[in-house]
Simulated assay, not measured.
Amino acid sequence: MTSKPVIIVTGADLAPEALALLGDYEVAFAGRTPQAADLVALARKHNPVGMIVRYGSVTAEVMDAAPALKVISKHGTGTDTIDKAAAQARGITVTAAAGANAAAVAEHALALMLACAKSVVKLDARMHAGHWDKATHKSLELNGLTVGLIGLGAIGRRFARMCDAIGMRVIGFDPFAADLPDYIEAVPLDKIWEASDVISLQCPLTADNKEMVNAATLARCKPGVILINTARGGLIDEAALFQAVQSGRVAAAGLDSFAREPMSAPHIFQRQPGFVLSPHIGGVTSAAYVNMGVAAATNTVAVLNSVREPAVGQQ
């Protein structure tokens, strides 16, 4: 056992720039796909003071296996894989690397939107098979269309700026957003469903918005709408979306996250026209990897330093 306090990383690696900030601590890695039992066992072995969460879920059971735990720091923005109620009950601080991967995720949302509108995947496959569809194919021009954003945090705002730059009308819903730029029109959620040619999800997953994209909301959308999700898979009723794509109500769906990850196989979306899929890698770029790691490490150390500092009058 090391004499240094331990920080567990629920992954196999961390950016060197982030590790350099953790020199006062021993860092233990949980591996590429840690399960709950793995994290419990690792927590019991090391009794960490901090956890940096990349993969897997941090449950109450994991927290109870680490009585010294003071901070759980997300290597990213979404904290839905952390039982925040359990953390609060145990006096454990939960932090997130807000904005650290905003550029990467917004760019990926743009890539998925363009892939859907321009039939990039389908045309690539046809070309490799020896076809030349110039005389028969027409793609969708996004200039002049309306994109509806659900979530106007750092990612949503950056994506909005990209959409505005290519000539799209941008409307958005976020009950917590303030001081929006003039190219984003704040609207009620109902208008997102009814007025959008493209809908893009950039919001956290909560108990209130779970499966907000469902049969009822999809039925209210324009025929031929495009749906983009670079947020959390739990925002979508996957069976309902499958039916909507099959019927043509949704022209195409560009998805980077899924209700269960890794995505179960076989999955109803696989090998189906109208779906452009990626394995939750919107925020996985070389720059974002460093940014998220540094932010997570900085947040972790800040909490641990504040815990160690004696209160005034108790020195």
Results as ranks from 00 to 15, higher is better:
Pro5Asn: 10
Val6Cys: 03
Ile7Glu: 02
Ile8Asp: 01
Leu14Ser: 00
Pro16His: 09
Ala30Tyr: 02
Ala30Ser: 13
Ala30Trp: 04
Ala36Tyr: 00
Ala37Lys: 11
Pro48Met: 12
Val53Ala: 11
Thr59Tyr: 04
Met63Ala: 10
Ala66Arg: 05
Ile72Gly: 04
Ser73Asn: 01
His75Ala: 07
Asp80Trp: 02
Thr81Ile: 14
Ala85Trp: 01
Gln88Ala: 13
Gln88Ile: 07
Gly91Ile: 11
Gly91Ser: 06
Ile92Val: 15
Ala96Pro: 00
Ala97Ser: 15
Ala98Lys: 03
Ala102Thr: 02
Val105Leu: 08
Ala106Glu: 06
Ala106Gly: 14
Glu107Met: 14
Ala109Cys: 13
Leu112Arg: 10
Leu114Phe: 10
Cys116Leu: 11
Val121Trp: 00
Ala125Cys: 02
Trp132Glu: 13
Trp132His: 13
Asp133Trp: 04
Ser139Ala: 10
Asn143Trp: 01
Leu145Glu: 02
Thr146Pro: 02
Val147Glu: 01
Ile150Gln: 05
Ile150Glu: 03
Leu152Pro: 15
Ala154Thr: 15
Arg158Ala: 12
Met162Lys: 10
Met162Tyr: 10
Met162Ser: 05
Cys163Ala: 07
Arg169Asp: 05
Arg169Met: 05
Val170His: 04
Val170Phe: 00
Phe173Met: 05
Phe173His: 15
Asp174Val: 09
Phe176Arg: 09
Glu185Asn: 07
Val187Asp: 02
Ile192Trp: 08
Trp193Val: 05
Ala195Gly: 05
Ser196Val: 09
Val198Met: 01
Thr206Val: 14
Ala207His: 02
Ala207Ile: 01
Met212Gln: 10
Val213Glu: 08
Ala215Cys: 06
Ala215Thr: 05
Ala215Ile: 04
Gly224His: 01
Ile226Lys: 03
Ala231Asn: 05
Ala231Met: 06
Arg232Ala: 14
Leu235Ala: 00
Glu238Ser: 12
Ala239Gln: 10
Ala240Gln: 08
Phe242Ala: 13
Ala244Val: 11
Val245Pro: 09
Gln246Trp: 03
Ser247Ala: 14
Gly248His: 11
Val250Cys: 14
Gly254Met: 08
Gly254Ile: 09
Gly254Gln: 11
Leu255Val: 07
Leu255Tyr: 05
Ala259Arg: 12
Pro262His: 08
Met263Tyr: 09
Ser264Asn: 11
Ala265Gln: 13
Ala265Ile: 07
His267Ser: 08
Gln270Gly: 05
Phe275Ala: 15
Ile281Gln: 11
Gly283Lys: 10
Val284Gln: 06
Thr285Asn: 11
Tyr289Met: 08
Tyr289Ser: 06
Val294His: 04
Ala295Met: 00
Thr298Pro: 00
Thr298Leu: 04
Thr298Phe: 04
Ala302Trp: 00
Asn305Gly: 11
Ser306Ala: 15
Arg308Ser: 14
Glu309Val: 07
Pro310Gly: 07
Gln314Tyr: 14
Gln314Pro: 04
